[in-house]
Each structure stands twice: as structure tokens, then as C-alpha cells.
């Protein structure tokens, strides 16, 4: 897969406040980037801009390859059992082997549990399973470690490493240390307006 993610000189404004400006990044296949910064500095907004869900106030974003986003919004129906909620996205993404992601993220025992009863960490793992099932080259992860126990945190880091090793791109916004392959980091504070 030929993945590419480029942002040129972008600025972000949220409700009359300029969060950052002059931010550029360039990710080639295999690149991983950790976006660091304090709360409210614009990490999530940057990911949403990169995903094309938010228009940048200035600058340009371009990407090749499908983009997968995992953020704090689960996009799984709260009242449905996890298996059924995930099945919708599997059908949409044409996923042929959903079992692998469930196994890696240890979700198999939870398939009958309605999504609203899942814990924070279990919900996060469910969102990651949807990402894995989609098999897309560009990953945008917003606080992927929130609510995860130490073991699950390690396996998420391993998943990102595996993804980048296979030529994928990962941009990880996290206020906690996240071991990305290559160890590239971007501090949004450097671009604060």
C-alpha cells in the first residue's frame, strides 16, 4: 500500500481562538508520529483536520490511502451487543476475517455484552478492533491508551509497531508516553499561536 499523509502550514481555530499555526508534517509509509501536548492544546483538532473532518483555518492537508480514526467517540450503538454493533462496520468495510482483531484485543468473551455496559478500556479496545478490521493504511489514534491496563497498553503499542512495519502510517495523539517506532514526536506547543 502506498500511504502518504502531508500537512502544509496548517492553522486551527476553534471558537474565536487560534490553537496553533504554521504546523507542517509529512508522513511516508512506515512512519509513526506521536503528537504530544497538554489538554486543550489542539491534539484532537489536529487529528480531525488530518482526517478531513474539520477544515483547517489555513493551510492544506493531503493524503493517499484510506484513513482510520479512533477517538473518544465510539460510534457503536450503546444498546446493542458488542458483536452486533461491530458487525455493522465489518459489513460496511467488507471485512472477511473479524476474528483476528477480536483475538488480538481479547474481545471474544464480550461479544454478547451490550456496548453501554463495557468499561472505558473495553470500549477503547472495541474501537481499535473496528480499526484493525478495516485494514486501512493511515491510522489516526486519539488518546489510544486512555482507560487501558498496562498489558493492553503494551499490545496497542505493539499493534502500532506492526502496522508501521507493514508500511502503514500512524499518528498518535497522547498525553502519556507512547512508544512509537522511530520515536518521532511533534509538540503542538511549539506551534502555539
Amino acid at each position: 500500500m502506498q500511504a502518504q499523509l502531508t500537512a502544509k502550514d496548517i492553522a486551527c481555530r476553534r471558537v474565536e481562538r487560534l490553537l496553533f499555526k504554521g504546523l507542517s508534517l509529512d508522513c511516508a509509509p512506515g512512519d509513526a508520529l506521536q503528537v504530544a501536548g497538554a489538554n486543550g492544546v489542539g491534539k484532537s483538532s489536529l487529528l480531525r483536520i488530518l482526517a478531513g473532518l474539520l477544515r483547517p483555518f489555513a493551510g492544506e492537508v493531503s493524503s493517499t490511502g484510506a484513513i482510520g480514526l479512533v477517538d473518544e467517540r465510539l460510534a457503536l450503538d450503546a444498546n446493542q451487543p458488542l458483536g452486533k454493533a461491530l458487525a455493522f462496520w465489518e459489513r460496511l468495510d467488507g471485512c472477511s476475517d473479524p476474528g483476528r482483531a477480536l483475538e488480538v484485543l481479547q474481545l471474544e468473551p464480550l461479544l454478547d455484552v451490550p456496548v453501554r455496559y463495557l468499561s472505558t478500556g473495553q470500549k477503547k479496545r472495541a474501537a481499535l478492533a473496528r480499526l484493525l478490521n478495516r485494514n486501512c493504511p493511515v491510522w489516526l489514534l486519539d488518546e489510544p491508551l486512555n482507560g487501558l491496563d498496562t498489558q493492553a497498553q503494551k499490545s496497542v503499542e505493539a499493534l502500532v509497531a506492526l502496522h508501521c512495519g507493514g508500511g502503514g502510517i500512524a499518528v498518535v495523539a497522547s498525553h502519556q508516553p507512547f512508544a512509537v517506532p522511530g520515536g518521532k514526536a511533534l509538540a503542538i506547543e511549539d506551534y502555539a499561536a
Binding site: 482526517a51 478531513g52 473532518l53 484510506a66 484513513i67 482510520g68 480514526l69 477517538d71 467517540r73 465510539l74 460510534a75 457503536l76 450503538d77 450503546a78 462496520w89 460496511l92 468495510d93 473496528r130 478495516r134
Partner: peptide
């Protein structure tokens, strides 16, 4: 809207 379903659909 609150669950971000439309965002995930837009990405697809």
C-alpha cells in the same frame, strides 16, 4: 451524531 457514527461513515 454524539457517538461519531457520521464521522466514521465520512472516513469511509
Amino acid at each position: 451524531l454524539e457517538a461519531g457514527v457520521f464521522d466514521q461513515l465520512a472516513l469511509r
